[in-house]
């Protein structure tokens, strides 16, 4: 795991997003334990409260569950929820694209053409 200590993005968000990616891509599997909040703090040389806040964020998203006295575990893969997470990301990126299109003075059809061209390249 890699974190920027002097970034504008709070450290807990950096940790949460890296763990989220590992869960969504299946690198961390259902039932896998997350490192204890104090172990992770020790390894990353940061405060315990920061790692705890990262885990709480993932827990609020339903990706992990806190088991009393035993730490945090990755939840069973909920396909619907993962699809939702990806949908959220898609919407966020498209919103950014619309914003850029407006600045560049492109209309809806021109944006669709660009999307189609990019889609073909990816395929």
């Amino acid at each position: 795991m890699k974190i920027y200590q002097n970034s504008n993005e709070p450290i807990y968000k950096q940790i949460a997003s890296q763990l989220r990616e590992q869960i969504l891509t299946g690198k961390l599997k259902s039932g896998d334990p997350l490192p204890s909040i104090r172990m992770l703090a020790q390894d990353l040389k940061i405060s315990v409260i920061t790692t705890m806040k990262a885990y709480e964020e993932l827990s609020a998203e339903g990706l992990v569950t806190a088991s009393k006295g035993k730490g945090y575990y990755v939840n069973a893969k909920d396909e619907k929820m993962i699809a939702e997470q990806h949908m959220c990301q898609l919407e966020e990126h498209l919103t950014n694209a619309i914003y850029s299109a407006r600045i560049a003075g492109l209309d809806y059809n021109e944006v669709c053409e660009t999307l189609r061209a990019l889609w073909d390249i990816e395929d």
């Binding site: 104090r38 703090a41 020790q42 040389k45 730490g71």
Partner: peptide, 14 residues
């Protein structure tokens, strides 16, 4: 010292 604090806290988690 900071490392030692974190070690101390992690050794008996919580």
């Amino acid at each position: 010292l900071c490392d030692m604090f974190r070690d101390y806290l992690a050794e008996k988690d919580g």
